[in-house]
Structure formats: C-alpha cells, structure tokens
C-alpha cells in the first residue's frame, strides 16, 4: 500500500469504533452501563457504519475513476446517469406502492442502475469516443431526472410523495444488516472492476491517441468503467438514496498526497470516501434537529457546494 492509503486505513480503523459510540445515546465503554447498549450497537449503529464504509468507499473510487477517465477534475460519478436511473427505479417503487414489500425498493433501484449501465454498454460497443460516451451518460441522467419529476408530480397520494422526497435526500438512518447484505456484493464487484482500470487510466493522461498507442483498448475500458461505476453507484443509491459530492470532493482531497497518476488515486479515494461518509453520518446523528436527524445527502451537499466553488475559483486562478 502507498503512504496515503496506509494513513487513511489507519484513520478508518481509529474512526470506526469511535463512530459506533456516538449518537443520540452516547455509549461510554468505561462509564456506567447503558441500557440496550448491545442492540443499539449491533442492530442500529454497526450496520449503519458498514453501509457508510461501503457506500462512501464506492463513491470515492467511482469518482476517482471518472475523473481519470474524463481527464477532468470536475467529473463526478453521477455524470454517467447511473445514479439518476437508480433513483428513478426507487421512486417508481414508491409510486407503484411496491416499496412496502421487503427488498422491493433496492431491487427497483438496482434494476434502474443496471438499465443505465446496459444503455452505456450499448454505446461503448459502438466504439464511441470519450466525449460521445459522456454526453450519452448525461442524456440518460437528464431523462431519468425528468421521469423522476414526472413520477413525483403524478404521485398517487401525499404519503407516496413524502416518501419519495424524503428518500431522495439520501440517508443511512434506520438501515439494517439486510441492506448491508444487498449493497456489499455489487460494491465489492464494482471495486474489483475499477481496480482493473488503473493502467488504462494512467495511459489516458497522455490523451486518447497516446493511450491507444500504449496498448489501451478503449472499448474494454468503457465496459469496465460502465460496469464498475454502475455497480458502485447503483448499490449506493439502492441503500442510501442520492448522496452527492462524495465522488467529486474525495479525489481532490487525496490527489495532492499522491504522485498524480489516476491509478494511485483509486485506493486512497475509496478509503477517504469511506472515512468521509462514516464521519458525516456520525455528525448527522449528533446534530439535534426537530423532527429527526439531519439527512446525510443534505449535509454533504451543504458542505460540498462551497468546496466546489472554492475549487472552481482555484482552477480559475491557475488558468489565469
């Protein structure tokens, strides 16, 4: 492991047990025994923490891979349209009322993500260049967004409406081991797929022609990315809703500590994404809000938007 990856792994090991102790009920391992401490830890907080690691790690790695692929520091895993399509799937499960069935919501979301991946793969199979591939992804995203709005505006009753809107904000509250079992396989598969893109992403640093001259197969790379990002983002949306900005911010925080190659960024971004989501979810539990806790998706967007602005200003200064 590289130095940033080792450091981040160490921080994660430190943060994980601490995050389990924090919440509406503080659990002090050295203090007086807390009532229901074991069920709180094992049934409420532990699955939530594991989900934060899975979703955050997946979004961090997906963001790093997307930025490497598009050779653009402003790229985000949402660009391929997988997240909006997965969200559309989830929204349709509310719309149709199937969401009350166990597993229906995440399965609908995964199906939506898979549909976006399939469309992307069709486009990749035709040998499209990077710009065309990305534009196609953005069109998928905007179509999914429009259909989601349509489902909201036509929602059959106020309960469905409120369910949809709340769910779209993204959260890890009230998740259990069932959600972990659902998110873990696609997340691990997605990470394994993206780990195979490192060499190609490094070569792409020199542009498409030079990358091909270095032996990169552009169609294979598009397949790997569509499937890898699709699995990670689809799994994330299925269990946590829309969680923005992680895939955008995390590679930026990590990049200065690496040698700049996209492949050197993948593992540290996964670890940093996991750490960021773990800490953010902890803070969400702790902030007292009337009517429940702060939604994770809102918290990250609140923190992420100013960061993005700061990034734009810095980029502008560098160009000037």
């Amino acid at each position: 492991m590289t130095r940033p990856a080792t450091l981040l792994a160490g921080l994660l090991l430190l943060a994980l047990p601490l995050s389990l102790l924090a919440g509406q009920v503080w659990i002090d391992p050295f203090g007086p025994p807390v009532r229901n401490a074991v069920p709180i830890l094992m049934e409420l907080r532990a699955p939530r923490a594991v989900l934060a690691l899975l979703v955050g790690g997946g979004l961090g790695a997906a963001g790093a891979a997307m930025q490497g692929y598009l050779r653009n520091p402003l790229a985000d895993p949402g660009l391929f349209g997988v997240a909006p399509m997965a969200a559309l799937g989830a929204v349709l499960s509310f719309y149709t009322g199937y969401a009350v069935q166990p597993f229906a919501l995440p399965v609908f979301a995964l199906a939506g993500g898979a549909l976006a991946m399939g469309l992307l793969a069709l486009i990749a199979g035709r040998g499209a260049g990077i710009a065309l591939f990305t534009l196609a992804g953005m069109m998928i995203a905007s179509l999914a967004g429009a259909l989601t709005s349509l489902a909201i505006s036509l929602s059959p009753n106020p309960f469905a409406l409120s369910e949809i809107v709340t769910w779209l904000m993204g959260a890890l509250a009230d998740r259990g081991w069932r959600d972990v079992a659902l998110a873990a396989p696609p997340t691990l598969l997605g990470l394994a797929l993206l780990a195979r893109t490192g060499r190609s992403l490094d070569a792409l640093t020199l542009g498409e022609a030079a990358a091909r001259s270095l032996g990169v197969d552009p169609v294979r790379l598009q397949w790997l990315l569509a499937a890898g990002v699709g699995c990670l983002v689809g799994a994330g949306v299925a269990v946590a809703g829309i969680i923005g900005f992680v895939g955008l911010i995390v590679p930026h925080m990590v990049r200065p500590f690496t040698d700049g190659r996209p492949s050197a960024l993948l593992l540290p971004s996964a670890l940093a994404g996991a750490l960021l989501l773990l800490l953010a979810d902890c803070l969400c539990r702790l902030v007292p809000l009337p009517g429940g806790e702060l939604r994770l998706g809102i918290a990250l967007s609140l923190a992420g938007a100013p960061f993005f602005l700061h990034l734009l200003l810095r980029l502008r200064r560098e160009v000037a």
Partner: peptide
C-alpha cells in the same frame, strides 16, 4: 502524438 497533452 502532436497534442502534447498531459492531463495531470
């Protein structure tokens, strides 16, 4: 290639 691109 002629472009001389280095993205990072």
């Amino acid at each position: 290639p002629q472009s001389g691109e280095v993205a990072w």
